Simulated assay, not measured.
Amino acid sequence: MNITQLSKISFLNSIQDLCILFVYITQLSSISILYSIQDVCILFAVIVVFLLFFNTYIFQAGLVNILIEKFKVAIGITFIYFGLNVGLHVWEMTLRWDEPNLYIWGTPGFIPLFVIQRTGAVLYYYFKTFIQKTSTRCNF
């Protein structure tokens, strides 16, 4: 993932809160589509990383433990971020579906989940860059 892709995804994460301000019933489906696209892109990124793992000499030689040990933090953060992302999106859409102009920030537990998800996003994008920078050492 290069800087351009990272900035586009960061822009999407930032602009979604501004889009919510102008939401009506007809636009709720478009925001749910954006959320779904974002979640599917994370899944595709995980699939690509595992496909790259399968093509390494280390994996083909049967030394899978080395790859898992080296990238377990990055893979774990990816799955945690995906879970937080889906959880936040589902909760936000269930809160806004019947009343699009509802003030959701007063909902107990929503702000902590939002902060944890955004912190997870920073870690996720950091470790995606880490995988990209170290990929030449693993012969991807």
Score class of each variant (00 low, 15 high):
residue 132 Q to M: 12
residue 115 V to S: 06
residue 49 V to T: 10
residue 49 V to K: 05
residue 59 F to H: 11
residue 18 L to H: 05
residue 61 A to H: 11
residue 119 T to Q: 08
residue 76 G to T: 08
residue 53 F to I: 05
residue 49 V to E: 08
residue 53 F to M: 06
residue 127 F to A: 02
residue 94 T to Q: 10
residue 115 V to N: 07
residue 50 F to Q: 07
residue 64 V to N: 13
residue 89 H to T: 02
residue 37 I to M: 11
residue 74 A to M: 06
residue 86 V to F: 06
residue 110 F to C: 00
residue 85 N to I: 01
residue 108 P to M: 09
residue 82 F to L: 13
residue 134 T to F: 12
residue 131 I to R: 09
residue 4 T to A: 07
residue 71 F to N: 05
residue 54 F to E: 11
residue 25 I to E: 07
residue 41 C to A: 15
residue 113 L to V: 12
residue 91 W to C: 00
residue 28 L to S: 02
residue 137 R to Y: 15
residue 1 M to F: 04
residue 121 A to G: 13
residue 49 V to P: 00
residue 71 F to M: 05
residue 57 Y to K: 12
residue 76 G to C: 08
residue 36 S to I: 05
residue 101 N to E: 13
residue 114 F to W: 14
residue 131 I to F: 14
residue 121 A to W: 08
residue 118 R to N: 14
residue 140 F to Q: 02
residue 45 A to R: 01
residue 34 L to A: 10
residue 73 V to H: 12
residue 42 I to T: 08
residue 24 Y to D: 10
residue 21 L to E: 04
residue 63 L to R: 15
residue 61 A to N: 11
residue 11 F to H: 12
residue 10 S to A: 13
residue 124 Y to S: 01
residue 137 R to C: 10
residue 43 L to H: 04
residue 98 D to A: 10
residue 72 K to H: 13
residue 86 V to Q: 00
residue 61 A to G: 07
residue 6 L to W: 04
residue 112 P to S: 01
residue 118 R to Y: 13
residue 45 A to V: 01
residue 132 Q to P: 01
residue 4 T to G: 02
residue 87 G to I: 03
residue 41 C to W: 13
residue 45 A to N: 03
residue 39 D to N: 03
residue 93 M to R: 07
residue 139 N to P: 01
residue 15 I to Y: 05
residue 9 I to D: 03
residue 47 I to L: 10
residue 122 V to Y: 12
residue 66 I to L: 14
residue 117 Q to H: 14
residue 5 Q to W: 06
residue 125 Y to C: 00
residue 43 L to R: 05
residue 111 I to Q: 08
residue 60 Q to Y: 06
residue 48 V to G: 06
residue 127 F to W: 11
residue 20 I to R: 11
residue 2 N to C: 11
residue 102 L to C: 02
residue 108 P to I: 09
residue 96 R to M: 07
residue 23 V to A: 07
residue 38 Q to A: 11
residue 73 V to D: 11
residue 100 P to I: 05
residue 56 T to I: 04
residue 79 F to R: 05
residue 39 D to K: 00
residue 64 V to H: 14
residue 47 I to E: 04
residue 107 T to W: 14
residue 127 F to H: 11
residue 123 L to R: 00
residue 24 Y to Q: 09
residue 135 S to L: 11
residue 48 V to I: 13
residue 39 D to V: 03
residue 30 S to N: 10
residue 79 F to E: 09
residue 65 N to Q: 15
residue 2 N to I: 05
residue 107 T to P: 01
residue 128 K to D: 02
residue 120 G to H: 07
residue 119 T to K: 05
residue 48 V to D: 12
residue 44 F to K: 05
residue 85 N to S: 15
residue 70 K to D: 12
residue 124 Y to G: 01
residue 139 N to E: 12
residue 12 L to K: 03
residue 85 N to G: 03
residue 67 L to I: 13
residue 33 I to F: 08
residue 133 K to Q: 15
residue 12 L to R: 04
residue 89 H to N: 11
residue 46 V to R: 03
residue 1 M to T: 02
residue 26 T to Q: 06
residue 71 F to E: 05
residue 42 I to Y: 02
residue 104 I to V: 13
